[in-house]
Design a protein around this nucleic acid. Structure first.
Length: 299
DNA sequence: CTGAGAACCTGCCGGC
DNA sequence: TGCCGGCAGGTTCTCA
């Protein structure tokens, strides 16, 4: 799926094209796209017309459009997760329907519409209330959609607490990559950027979390921030047309990847052939020399 | 409670 | 050409 940088690219596009507009209509073309909206597709579509869209927000890989308008009291939001293949696209309302168009939203100004297109249907949209942000520093006033209150802050947010992350890792009994992908510990990091950050920090994916030092965790977080910030700067990573901004354009970061997808190609630091391991039903890429397997490995 | 694996989908690619 | 296994950037659920 789109990881943090790709989702942020989409958020920025929505901020530019959708913020401040009022919804005229919503249409659900595939009920699975709103399966997590408990009251069902009809309720989803019926409650959107008349709502005004605020400034889109994001935490990790989730993004949401705050809604104001007739029905909305303290706060509701249109929450979106792109899953593995979801896209949020804006464009001329008259254009042809995409093959995997799931939800269409039109606005009362008659301008660009908003479409949720999702080939594999792992992504979803839902309408939900907002609750106080459990990860915000005390006395802060942020709010987040209720269904994602368990999603940790991401490393590019002010609310992310490096020291708390280190302590949580020391308490865990698992491998560092599994922990990096655990969105309740740190959000926004997926399979690509986990591998890239571990390579930069010279840590093996199976390193037991309870053996990590403060310095190593600091290095890892710095690496994760660097790689995701760099990816964001060039529009994110995409190997194919599945990962695009709201205008359907791909990013260029795939050209900057150091290990992901580079099996048997030389490590850019030491020349050793990059290895690929199967793990968690997915691939992990690492350099056998820069990231030696720990004596005690955890999966 | 924690950790590990399966399930949920569609499409593409390489090998036979 | 067609079929089949393997693989794809994620999350949630279930079971131990």
């Amino acid at each position: 799926m789109p990881e943090l940088p790709e989702v942020e690219v989409v958020r920025r596009g929505l901020e530019r094209h959708v913020a401040g507009r009022t919804i005229k209509s919503a249409e659900v073309l595939h009920p699975r796209a709103v399966r997590r909206h408990a009251p069902g597709p009809d309720d989803f579509a019926a409650r959107l017309p008349g709502r005004a869209v605020g400034v889109p927000r994001r935490r990790g890989k989730y993004l949401w459009l705050p809604l104001t308008g007739p029905e909305s009291d303290p706060g509701e939001a249109l929450l979106a997760h792109l899953g593995m293949s979801g896209q949020l696209l804006v464009g001329d309302p008259g254009r042809a329907a995409e093959r995997h168009l799931r939800v269409r939203i039109e606005f009362d100004d008659g301008g660009y519409d908003l479409r949720f297109v999702d080939q594999r249907t792992f992504g979803h949209l839902m309408l939900t209330g907002l609750v106080p942000d459990p990860f915000a520093p005390a006395a802060a006033t942020g709010s987040v959609p209720e269904p994602i209150a368990h999603i940790a802050a991401d490393p590019l947010e002010d609310a992310f607490d490096d020291e708390a992350f280190y302590r949580a890792l020391r308490r865990r009994r698992t491998g560092i990559k599994r922990a990096l992908l655990d969105q309740s510990l740190i959000s926004g990091v997926g399979n690509i950027y986990a591998d890239e950050a571990l390579w930069r920090a010279r840590l093996h994916w199976a390193r037991p979390t309870e053996t990590l030092t403060r310095a190593e965790v600091r290095r890892l977080l710095e690496a994760a921030r660097e790689v995701m910030t760099a990816a964001l700067a060039v529009g994110g990573t995409s190997f194919d047309s599945l990962y695009v901004n709201v205008n359907g354009e791909s990013g260029y970061f795939d050209r900057s990847l150091e290990v992901y997808g580079r099996r048997d190609e030389p490590c850019r630091r030491c020349g050793s052939p990059i290895r690929r391991d199967a793990f968690m039903n997915r691939s992990s890429y690492s350099c056998p020399r820069c990231q030696p397997r720990p004596r005690r490995a955890r999966y």
